[in-house]
């Protein structure tokens, strides 16, 4: 196996939120808490988790849009966690972001051609008619009419706009593209088109993706590996097949239970598990395992110790779980074992 393209090592990001009500008092939000992960070249790492669990923050940390509170980010072997400005710029070329909101992420006062060619201009890759040609080519690649080069974002539909965002990310031929919920704002009918486009581009341009979503049915189709996030932490990682077949963490299991099966005719139709309670606040995270207040399998020790992210049972080194009482293969969340193996 080649060296990972991107390595996040104990990445932590906190925000200081000032509340107007409590004068002077500031609260620390641990949006990303001690996250380590690696992305291999050519793979797609799916990052899933509920709203507010810190996915976007983690993405922005590795894309170096935020300064890190702790930990390091290595890209292609270089530590980029403390670089800034001019020194960061070469890495910016290699790593692009596709944003969730196709409306907010496109400057309404700039023409589409100029938005897509922005990176080419910033890095002095191409000027004038050369840039125009490249941009129009990119538009064709992502399925836009190149003649609409001079239009404004407002003239396009949501799906088209996301294609503009994709073309912009593609322009500098990056190695890594971080897709932060690229389709969640789109019409369901459009989502598949955009996702297929991303997959095609991946094979055409040998792209590596960090693919963020809270939609597991999407992640299952695009990803080779999955990382599950809960309250700023990674609770389980593994290959898609491994996780869908053999998830260990109760949270993962609960998430997966909500996913309609890939094959509707399969007999394996588990009841969706409804987790009690809401995502706890990351200002005052629960002690011990952050999931314990909502965990159906919680035991006394869960409140005391933070479980490490390690292989459990006979899992290989690729399947890591942070749980003191992980599920066994075939074990049900309710505690029953369907396959009898206890």
């Amino acid at each position: 196996m080649s060296d990972p393209l991107l390595v996040a090592d104990h990445v932590t990001k906190t925000f200081t939120a000032r509340r107007r009500a409590s004068r002077g008092g500031s609260q620390v939000v641990r949006a990303v808490d001690d996250v380590s992960l690696a992305i291999e070249p050519g793979e797609t790492l799916g990052l899933v988790g509920e709203t507010g669990c810190g996915k976007s923050t983690l993405a922005r940390c590795v894309a170096r849009l935020y300064p890190l509170t702790g930990g390091t980010v290595r890209f292609d072997g270089h530590d980029i966690s403390t670089l800034s400005g001019r020194r960061l710029r070469p890495f910016r070329r290699e790593m692009q972001v596709i944003f969730q909101d196709p409306y907010g992420s496109l400057n309404p006062r700039r023409r589409v051609g100029s938005i897509i060619g922005d990176g080419l201009a910033i890095h002095h890759v191409a000027d004038g008619s050369a840039r125009r040609e490249q941009v129009q080519h990119l538009m064709e690649v992502v399925g836009l009419n190149p003649e609409h080069y001079n239009r404004f974002p407002a003239d396009f539909s949501g799906g088209q706009r996301q294609r503009i965002g994709i073309a912009r990310a593609l322009a500098l031929r990056p190695k890594l593209i971080i897709c932060d919920e690229p389709v969640s704002a789109l019409d369901v009918s459009i989502q598949a088109q955009v996702i297929n486009l991303l997959l095609d581009l991946q094979s055409d341009f040998r792209l590596t993706y960090l693919f963020i979503t809270h939609d597991l049915s999407v992640v299952r189709h695009v990803s080779s590996r999955i990382a599950v996030m809960y309250l700023g932490r990674i609770v389980e990682t593994g290959t898609v097949d491994e996780l869908f077949a053999n998830s260990r963490h109760p949270y993962t299991r609960a998430l997966l239970s909500a996913v309609p099966p890939a094959d509707p005719d399969a007999a394996d139709s588990r009841e969706p598990v409804v987790l009690p309670g809401d995502l706890p606040s990351s200002v005052n995270p629960p002690s011990g395992c952050p999931f314990h207040p909502r965990c159906p399998r919680r035991q006394a020790d869960c409140e005391l110790a933070m479980p490490p992210l390690d292989p459990v049972y006979d899992d290989g080194p690729d399947h890591l779980t942070a749980c003191l009482h992980p599920l066994r293969a075939g074990e049900d969340l309710s505690g029953a074992t369907s396959d009898g193996a206890a």
Partner: peptide, 10 residues
Amino acid sequence: EFVEAARSLG
């Protein structure tokens, strides 16, 4: 976000 987008472009 478009400001962030520009920043991510360098």
